[in-house]
Amino acid sequence: MIAHPATTSASNRVPTGIAGLDSLIQGGFPLGSVNLVAGPAGSGKSLLALQFAYQGASAFDEPSAFLALEETRDSVERVAALFGMDLKRMEEAGKFVLVDLGAIRAGSPREQLTVGLRELEDFLRSCIASTNVRRVVVDSISAVGLRYRSLQELREEMFAFTRFLRDSKVTSLLVTESPEGGRLTRFGVEQFLADSFLHLALDEVKGELRRTLTVRKMRLTRHDTGKHPVHITTEGIVVAEERVL
């Protein structure tokens, strides 16, 4: 496959800053693209997403917003601190926005506990305008999908949401879960609406779980298609260069 010339130049790529990943995807995500990372519990998808946002703010001068839909601010801050990410410093510098949208839903009726995609869009529209963020992470859209009664409705809403993200000229990363032993994504439609799809897996090797990453899809990119070991180090996720055989 030949990559689109316009997307191979460094200025049109958004580096993730995650060790070993950018070299698999021609230097980073396509500028302004909607990207998806999926994986089962414990595969490292939230950490990968957090690193993408933090690296943007700290290493690439791209203000980032991290929208936590299932975790509290406190919980995200604690995870970040474990891997040497100083979110408070970045927030004070105006380069990082950490939002716990669940915080304003506590005490709501059961049917209103989850955030819908229109609400997310409504929030992001104001957030992007007032903070000038260039990277957006939503962790996770699995929670959002619970609001919809049919897959058709979810797909339509998600189509509109991804279109909004592209129109907003931000590079986004959406997190979704992979159900155990079945579909690659929670609802089976997310990967068709995103421009790229990273899949994290937990493979059992000799009675031990090993994390891996595969770039299953990336538009306008000549990407590596192999399965690569993933290590979680004190500095976060590291994608190994060698392939899993």
């Binding site: 609400e119 409504d122 929030f123 104001s126």
Partner: peptide, 16 residues
């Protein structure tokens, strides 16, 4: 609240 968070999230915050 509406300017910074959008009508829905902003409205919820004010309601709280």
């Amino acid at each position: 609240a509406t300017d910074l968070l959008g009508a829905t999230a902003g409205g919820r915050l004010v309601r709280i």
